[in-house]
Design a protein around this nucleic acid. Structure first.
Lengths: 233, 233
DNA sequence: AAAAAAATATGCTCTTTAGCATATTTTGTA
DNA sequence: TACAAAATATGCTAAAGAGCATATTTTTTT
């Protein structure tokens, strides 16, 4: 955990509007209890089972939230992008952490001390409500994901993953390349399949002219087809 | 939707302590906006895609929360027991309903009008916080379930389902029979497998003297073994 | 009580996908 | 630049589990 507390980082509330629910005093209080930490690629930010000490906001970079299942096989639960919050669920549920989080690429994380965050969320009802809405959305997403991952076949799951990456991270300037370059192994762990199957299925999509590959860059050529494959399973 | 508004039902707040977060005035307000509805076995309470109009509390009976996946195949997301809340997630996320709910057996549901519930949750921060805690727990459960269902094999998934039914509904007076008699088809939809496989695997468990079957009654003979099977996948 | 419908039980086949091996390419590092 | 390590690609085999058929039992309806 390579600490580096520099001054030229934006303030919390410049990154996510949820902080606007706080009064000026509360903002200062949270800011005083916030540390900024840099993580290198693949560095672990926190582990499943850890007792949460900070609520976190990703300021820069990309991170994966994952669980280790049977035989340590990792399942990526969700991928985060800048301004997303994490590590607060366990805190609120008063549980130890359910998931691990690691940096997909070099990332900057704002860490707010548990006590400070909990104090504000318990006393500021508008702020509390915003977090509830976030969790309600995440819960819906998680239930949808359960069905997608359990019922769809390899092709459907991978198509789904590509679409959700596009949705989450957007496209490069060419308007077709997904702005997220992940390894085949991560693709597999995201879509619940073996690495070999992720590789094979991506190759098939290339043959069928649904996507084009250039190393880890994935260009979507036929989004409609991808949507159809994802729908049919 | 067989309505039957009788007077001898307990008040909301006698069923779930969360209502104790409300002031007397708020309690009356919620009570005035609450209808009690009876559902027959297998009757649908609400459907995926419905726009939520009421937050609901199960007062009596058992209900299944499920999603229809590929080819209408239902996946049971969770089973509820009396005093559990449901149908509030979509409301809070401002989405249409993500899941369907149907009565597993004859059930009594308290339905609180959306506006009344939303008004209270937006203004009473202690009440809001309680719901946030509930959702945080559900979200953790949902993520765990995703990994269980995707990574474990049939035996592990079924063992897991039996243990969670025991956990949720408890045991009969004999201290071994799960107090929940579900069809093999429901068992299959809960554990993400075909009905034939649920039947087959239950039979195997009987042969191995892990459980005993008497129609739909399931008696757990060797819980340790069940736990081991569930752990190993 | 009889008939019909639904649920349970079991066997067989075939598809999907995991597991493994191996070759090749790319990336990171000395 | 060269070497080692990691990632990608692809083929073969085996296992898990779905799909289907059919028989039997249980439940519901007439």
């Amino acid at each position: 955990m390579a600490k580096k507390t520099v001054t030229d980082y934006p303030k919390l509330w410049e990154l996510n509007e949820v902080w606007q629910m706080l009064s000026d005093d509360e903002k200062v209080y949270i800011n005083d209890n916030c540390t900024i930490v840099n993580f290198r690629k693949n560095e672990i930010i926190h582990k499943e089972g850890d007792v949460p000490t900070h609520m976190m906001m990703l300021a820069k970079g990309k991170v994966r939230v994952y669980k280790e299942g049977i035989g340590k096989k990792p399942q990526i639960i969700r991928m985060l992008k800048p301004c997303d919050f994490f590590a607060y669920r366990a805190m609120i549920a008063n549980e130890s952490s359910n998931t691990s989080v690691s940096a997909f690429e070099a990332s900057v994380v704002y860490m707010v001390k548990k006590d400070a965050f909990m104090h504000v969320i318990e006393t500021n009802s508008r702020f509390c409500y915003q977090f509830m809405v976030m969790m309600a959305r995440d819960l819906g997403q998680s239930d949808r994901r359960t069905v997608n991952l359990t019922q769809k076949h390899v092709r459907g799951r991978l198509a789904e993953a590509l679409l959700s990456l596009k949705q989450n991270y957007g496209l490069d300037d060419d308007g077709a390349t997904i702005s997220m370059y992940m390894s085949r192994e991560d693709m597999a762990n995201l879509s619940n399949m073996t690495t070999a199957n992720a590789i094979r299925t991506l190759s098939n999509f290339v043959e069928e002219e649904i996507i084009a590959l250039d190393g880890r860059k994935i260009k979507i050529l036929d989004e409609d087809k991808l949507i159809r494959i994802s729908r049919l399973g």
